[in-house]
Design a protein around this nucleic acid. Structure first.
Length: 507
RNA sequence: GCCCCCAUCGUCUAGCGGCCCAGGACAUAGCCCUCUCAAGGCUAAAACACGAGUUCGAAUCUCGUUGGGGGCACCA
C-alpha cells in the first residue's frame, strides 16, 4: 500500500456522488458515506452529486426521499447537482433514465458482452435448490448464454419475457483496485452472469450505477463495503464498455454497539428506549446537534492524527483525507456520541444555544421569555449532554409551583426542626438583601450558616430544594438571582410551611 | 456451503521495519477543584488474536490458524 500513500495530498477537483435508494430510513452509515463524499468535493473544489437510485418500484417508499433530503440538509450537506437542484448531467433520478440503461445494455449485447435470457423464475429457483443440495455455488448455469442472436430475437418477437444478463468471462482472473485495500484478484468463474435488465425493463444497480457514474463523469466512488463482493463484476462491466474506472473506495460498515453484526430492526427499537437512534432524523428530536453527529461519524473510520478529536465541518473539509480511512468495521459507540454532543454544546455561543434549547422548552409546555432564557442558558450550558436535558435542568425557572417531597428539606445530618430554623433565618436574611449582587448574597448566606453552626453546603442544600425543587440544580445563588427575589421569597415561604407541617406532625 | 474483506485497550483509534516494555479519546476507578450536579485538572487500570517465517531488528512484511464482518436475488 506504499504507492497509495501520500497520493491524495492535493487532489484535483473531484466529482463524487451519494447514491442512495429510497427504500427506507436514512441512517448513520448513509450519513457518513454522504459526508465523506461531500468533504472530498468541498476540499478539492469539485462537485457533490445526489443521485436517487429508485429502479426498484417494488421497494420504493415515497416518504424515504423526503426524509433523506431533510437528514442530509440537517447535517449541513449541500449538493451541487441533484433531483431537487438540477444540474448539467441530469436527470438525477434513475427512474427517469430507464431508456438510457436499456440503450447501453443493447450496446453490450452488440459487443457480445451481454445476452438475452428467457429462463423463468421457476427454473432459476429449481436450479438454485439443486445447487444448494449439491453444495455447489448458486449461480446461473448459462443455458441462454448459448442461444444464437437469431434465436433470441425470434423468441423476443414471439413475446417471450426476457432479462438481459452480463456475459461474464468464465476463465482467467480479474484484478481490481480498492483505494484502501489495494489490489483484489478473483477468479472470473466465481462471478455470476448477473442480470443487468429485469423482465420489467428496468436496469438493476450493477448496470445503472456504472452507466450513470460514467455519464455523470464521476471520478471517485466512495460507497459502502457491502459492494466489495460485486466490485469485480462492476469492473468487468466498465471495461466491457471500454470506459476508464473511477477510483473506488469501499467504506467500512457500522456494527451495532456490541460489535456483533449489523443493526437490526429490533436493535433499533431497543436503542430508542435508551434515548438513541441510528436514524438521523430522530437525532434532532433527541436533542443532538448536527455538529456533534458530523464530528462523531467522521471519526468512525477516519482519523486525523493521534490526538485531535474535535472537528467542525470547516475543519473536516480542510483535514479530511482518503489516506487515513480505516477499512475495518466499527462498532457504533453512543456513549462517545454523548461526549461529542456535550463538547459541541459547550462550544456554542450563548445566543445560539438558547435558540436551540427553546423548542424543547416550548414543547415541554413552558412559556419561554427570550430575555430570561438568555440568562438561564449560561448556567446550564456545561451541564447539558443533550438539548432536551434543559427541560429537566431548567424547568423550575418556568414553573409556577414546585413539587417535591418535604422530607428533602431536611439538611444533611440535621433534624427537621434545625432545617426549619435555617429556612426561617434565610427568609429573614434574604428579605433584606438586594438580589443583584451575587457576591454579597453568597457571603451573607455563608455567614448565616456559620452563625448557625452548620456548613454552607448544608444550608445551600436546603435552599436548593426550596427554590429549585431538586437536589441537583444549576448553582444556587445564580439560580436565585435569575428567579428573582419575589419568586424566591414566595417559594421559601412555601418551603417553611411544608417543613413546619412536617415538624408538627412529628412532634 | 461458496466468494470477498477485516483483525492494536471494553469501544473509537494513532502506528506505514528501529522514535513503541505501544500514544490519544470515550467509558470505568481514585484524587483535586467545589453549594449539588456538571465542566475542568491529575492519576490508575486496560490492547498489538494465535503460530510459523523474513530481518541485525516486526504491532508494522509473508504464510497459516482462529475469530469477526460483508456478499451469494428479475434488491440496492
Amino acid at each position: 500500500m506504499w504507492s497509495l500513500y501520500n497520493m491524495a495530498e492535493k487532489l484535483p477537483p473531484v466529482r463524487v456522488r451519494f447514491a442512495p435508494s429510497p427504500t427506507g430510513r436514512t441512517h448513520l452509515g448513509s450519513g457518513r458515506t454522504a459526508l465523506y463524499n461531500y468533504l472530498l468535493a468541498r476540499q478539492t473544489g469539485g462537485q457533490f452529486i445526489l443521485r436517487i437510485e429508485d429502479t426498484d418500484q417494488k421497494r420504493y417508499v415515497p416518504e424515504a426521499e423526503q426524509e433523506l433530503i431533510e437528514s442530509l440538509r440537517w447535517l449541513g450537506l449541500q449538493w451541487d447537482e441533484g433531483p431537487d437542484v438540477g444540474g448539467p448531467y441530469g436527470p438525477y433520478r434513475q427512474s427517469e433514465r430507464k431508456e438510457i440503461y436499456l440503450e447501453y445494455a443493447k450496446q453490450l449485447i452488440a459487443r457480445d458482452k451481454a445476452y438475452y435470457c428467457f429462463c423463468t423464475p421457476e427454473r432459476l429457483a429449481r436450479l438454485r435448490e439443486q445447487q444448494i443440495q449439491n453444495k455447489q455455488p448458486t449461480m446461473y448455469d448459462g443455458l441462454c448464454r448459448r442461444l444464437t442472436p437469431e434465436d433470441a430475437l425470434r423468441r423476443i418477437k414471439q413475446g417471450e419475457p426476457y432479462v438481459i444478463r452480463f456475459k461474464t468471462p468464465k476463465e482467467g482472473l480479474i484484478t481490481v483496485r480498492d483505494y484502501l485495500r489495494g489490489e483484489i484478484t478473483v477468479e472470473n468463474r466465481t462471478i455470476d452472469d448477473y442480470i443487468l435488465v429485469k423482465s420489467d425493463g428496468w436496469a438493476v444497480y450493477h448496470l445503472a450505477a456504472m452507466v450513470d457514474d460514467q455519464l455523470m463523469r464521476i471520478t471517485h466512488v466512495l460507497r459502502s463495503s457491502e459492494w466489495l463482493s460485486t466490485f469485480p463484476l462492476h469492473a468487468h462491466i466498465i471495461r466491457a464498455f471500454g470506459w476508464q474506472e473511477p477510483v473506488f473506495v469501499h467504506l467500512s460498515v457500522f456494527l451495532k454497539p456490541s460489535g456483533k453484526g449489523k443493526m437490526s430492526k429490533r436493535d433499533s427499537a431497543q436503542l430508542l428506549q435508551d434515548g438513541y437512534s441510528i436514524y438521523i432524523k430522530d437525532l434532532e428530536q433527541l436533542g443532538y446537534l448536527p455538529e456533534a453527529v458530523v464530528n462523531w461519524i467522521a471519526l468512525m473510520g477516519w482519523s486525523y492524527d493521534d490526538k485531535t478529536e474535535f472537528f467542525t465541518m470547516q475543519d473536516l473539509i480542510e483535514k479530511f483525507s482518503l489516506d487515513h480511512l480505516n477499512p475495518s468495521p466499527a462498532a457504533i459507540n453512543f456513549t462517545k456520541f454523548d461526549h461529542f454532543n456535550g463538547l459541541h454544546i459547550r462550544h456554542l455561543s450563548v445566543e445560539d444555544l438558547a435558540r436551540r434549547i427553546k423548542p424543547f422548552l416550548v414543547r415541554a409546555g413552558f412559556e419561554v421569555d427570550d430575555q430570561k432564557l438568555l440568562q438561564i442558558t449560561p448556567v446550564i450550558q456545561e451541564r447539558l449532554v443533550t438539548l432536551d436535558d434543559a427541560v429537566e435542568l431548567a424547568g423550575f425557572f418556568f414553573r409556577e409551583h414546585l413539587e417535591y417531597e418535604p422530607t428533602l428539606l431536611i439538611g444533611k445530618d440535621m433534624t427537621a426542626a434545625q432545617s426549619l430554623k435555617a429556612l426561617q433565618e434565610s427568609y429573614q436574611l434574604l428579605s433584606g438583601l438586594d438580589f443583584n449582587d451575587k457576591e454579597h448574597l453568597e457571603a451573607a448566606l455563608r455567614s448565616l450558616a456559620e452563625q448557625m453552626g452548620i456548613k454552607a453546603g448544608q444550608l445551600f442544600g436546603i435552599l436548593r430544594i426550596a427554590v429549585t425543587g431538586k437536589s441537583v440544580s444549576p448553582p444556587l445563588i445564580e439560580s436565585m438571582i435569575i428567579l428573582g427575589k419575589e419568586k424566591v421569597m414566595e417559594w421559601l415561604q412555601t418551603a417553611i410551611k411544608r417543613l413546619a407541617t412536617l415538624v408538627q406532625a412529628n412532634a
